[in-house]
Design a protein around this nucleic acid. Sequence first.
DNA 1: GGCGGTAACGTACGCCGTACGGAGATATTC
DNA 2: GAATATCTCCGTACGGCGTACGTTACCGCC
Lengths: 251, 251
Amino acid sequence: MATDFTAGADPARTMALLWRGPRDDVPRPGPRAGLDVDRIVATAVRLADADGLPALSMRRVAAELGAGAMSLYTHVPGKAELIALMYDSVLAGLYPEPPSGNWRARLTAVAQANWDLLVRHPWVATVGTGRPILGPNLMAKYDAELAAVDGLGLGEVEMELVTILVTGFVKGIVSGLHEKVAAEQASGLTEEQWWAATEPHLDRVFDPERYPTATRVGPVSGPELGAYPAERAYAFGLERLLDGVAAIIDR
Amino acid sequence: MATDFTAGADPARTMALLWRGPRDDVPRPGPRAGLDVDRIVATAVRLADADGLPALSMRRVAAELGAGAMSLYTHVPGKAELIALMYDSVLAGLYPEPPSGNWRARLTAVAQANWDLLVRHPWVATVGTGRPILGPNLMAKYDAELAAVDGLGLGEVEMELVTILVTGFVKGIVSGLHEKVAAEQASGLTEEQWWAATEPHLDRVFDPERYPTATRVGPVSGPELGAYPAERAYAFGLERLLDGVAAIIDR
DNA sequence: GGCGGTAACGTACGCCGTACGGAGATATTC
DNA sequence: GAATATCTCCGTACGGCGTACGTTACCGCC
């Protein structure tokens, strides 16, 4: 479900930006710098939080900063690198304290942290990470999550697989949640209005002869799951998943 | 991770197209139609399979058909509706036979069918389905998957939640797989080349003081998971997940 | 005072989706 | 056979996008 990619980024320049130290304040020739990487990234994050990645354009970010579009390119090589920087920046402070308690509580905390992150920054789930964005904050996240499944007698590979399973699960659920919001924004129709507009065709959709199980389950689960299926799916799925993990921990 | 949205589509027109019957061959005034919805959808699917949704443009589809870009709009209201039609069309025949065997085998078959679908049509996972695309083939898929968890003593809501859990899991895993491929295409760098380009910065990334668990686990799990982490994550995750489901079925 | 380096920006190119209006072909009606 | 209504197809254009390229204006240093 990747909307935008960081893959086109130049690895060396991206890494240099991700791990750049504090601005060296040695005065240099040339005009005063009104822009800098941090301001650009912070502004881009704010815009993406509000309107999503598809609405994020270099021109919009620049306009928000009172600058011309091309001025951004003085500080950031391109949009792919900007998104990589945005990505790592919002991971900062994700785990103020390492998850504690028994392993189930720790993994629940990991899931919750990912949930909170993705709810706060919906666009994060849409960033394509075909290449890992190896910034300091992603590494801290990776480290904290692996630590949460450490000391359980799992091998290194199993540790990694469990964290992938939990974080991937949360990402999927929250993505579904945000797609509903995005649909409402894109169509200008609330879910209710959309169903009303679709209703005239529903007799063919809910055809008991053709789709017996669907017509039995749908009308029950739909209203029951209601407007917040994501929350239910999250709670239910996480328990199932932890039960499954228990099977290899308690063996 | 939704790259493109069907949400902007007009519900009524979309439904009319999804459920349109066989072409009525009543002769009508006007020139012979060289294009039709099926040809347009089939061509678009072929292009998306080859190059992904981001590379799919109305102009490209039209050019492939030897037509002008605007000619498509005679048959399809817009790109959103075209993607909805593509989506439902590739779901056709997903379950030639209803999944059979015990519940674990049936759910494994469901997962496998979703895997196959998403591997064959990578772009499907990137279609934003904030509004369900209620075509005949999606309904058939929905019906077959619910039937796979029928008769297990689960309530309707639980049945729905289990299928969401399994299909969402597969979607997440395959998405990760395809993002790697997309990254290779977008960057022109193989994963090996990318790591080589990143390597000079890795001493800060794999800092044992700062990231103790990550530096212990990463170097072991990385090479072990190797070039195909998705397959491993799939096999591992599905087993964990089914074990978790067993906890509510065998209760 | 002049030089060199840098931040900022104006313009332009080739993409995109699609609104609009016109051209030409064809079946129906007279 | 002629007129008409209707339908397919498409040329043009608009406002968006990322960004390559070249220019301008400012500033610290010698």
